[in-house]
Amino acid sequence: MFYKRLIVLLLLVGVISYCVIYFTVDINTLKTLIDFQPWSIAAAFFSVAIGLFLDGLRLTQLIKISGEKITPLQAARVVFGNYFLALLTPGFSGGAVAQLMFLRHADIPIGKATVIVIVRTLVSIAFLFVCMPFILLSDDGVLPWISNETLLFVSILAIGAVALLVWAMVSGYFDKVAIFIAKKISHKKGRKLIGFYRDNKKAILLLASSPAGLLKVFIISGLSLIALYSVVPFLLLGLGVDINWALVMGRMIFLNIFLYFSPTPGGSGIAEGGFVLLFNTIAPVGTVGVVAVAWRLFAEYIPFLVGFYYTLKSFGRSFLGKSSLKKTS
């Protein structure tokens, strides 16, 4: 199961990377690549390292709020393990499984581990959505065929709906609604719905129990994502492209919101295609494909390899064929 997925992923990444570069590269790109600034590569590595460090710091803060403890090495395994299984599964769903495995390996109770994993995802998505109105007010060309007014209305509506849902869950008003819906569907689906609702409510209550801790986690999450996305402007600058830093970061945030709901393994194809679509007016046509592939290499594939190493070291080769991988399907 694992090796089939790995082979499919490698083939998919290889084909997509080749196509993206083939259809966007030109003769001037080859000349530009010769003049590529080494400092930008170093800056990209440093940016990813800072982003991953802050991701680990966020994890330790969440575990501290839950009343548990974790060592820096254990936190690193959780972070990199997330990248490992996330890239093998649609919508990064395997990342949650990997985080649970490594948290249990660190002796975190399964109930708290589940809540912590949900909180990590919710806080990241919340930061991206909070940024959306500011991005749409300052960038007129995100999606040319949809007006920014429409996108702004949808984003504010989504933020308002989520805020209302969180309030309803914390206050208990939504409990009866969840039970009512569960009774109207099959018993099996109803149990899954109630379990999903219960886990998410526990995650929200955990954050609500420590407002100061919540603010700290939110800020660290934002800084982590900004550091990871900064790979792109560093790479563009290294190719001699004159960029608007805020514009580039805004479009990276916009792109990554959609990647959370990608149906392909690790967002492969959608990430590269979306990048070319959003950045073809910012970067020269001949360089946008190269930067798209390089971004994925720095921000996803290198952490994936580290996560692969930690998984083998922690669980052994026998893990790769176990049913836990099948459950991520």
Score class of each variant (00 low, 15 high):
F196S: 08
I220H: 07
W145T: 10
I226Y: 11
T89K: 01
L103C: 08
L152Q: 04
F46K: 06
A227D: 14
S324H: 06
L320G: 14
I27M: 12
T114W: 04
L85E: 06
A75Y: 05
K184Q: 04
M1A: 13
I125G: 04
F315K: 05
I27S: 14
S209I: 01
V276T: 07
F261Y: 06
G213V: 00
P263M: 11
S329P: 04
L137D: 09
F304G: 01
P263W: 09
Y18A: 15
L12G: 15
P133S: 09
S186M: 00
L214I: 13
L205Q: 15
P72E: 11
K327T: 02
L54I: 07
V232A: 13
G111S: 11
S147A: 07
A299Y: 14
I125F: 14
S324Y: 10
R296E: 08
V248S: 05
A203V: 09
A44G: 14
V97T: 08
L255N: 10
G141Q: 10
A299V: 13
L88C: 09
I257K: 08
F218R: 10
P144K: 15
S323W: 11
G240D: 06
G266T: 04
A43D: 04
A208G: 00
G81C: 11
S66V: 09
A227Q: 08
G91V: 01
L207S: 05
I156P: 06
Q61P: 00
A163Y: 02
K188E: 10
V162N: 00
I220S: 06
G160Q: 05
G172C: 07
P133F: 10
A42Y: 12
C131L: 08
L207Q: 07
K176Y: 00
L136F: 10
F234I: 05
I110N: 03
A227H: 05
V288L: 10
T328Y: 06
Q99P: 00
L100V: 10
K216E: 07
K69H: 04
A42F: 12
I63N: 01
T89A: 02
R77L: 04
V276Y: 03
L325Q: 03
I179E: 12
V48I: 12
L235E: 07
L59V: 04
R120S: 14
G321F: 05
G56D: 02
A106N: 04
N82W: 13
L305A: 15
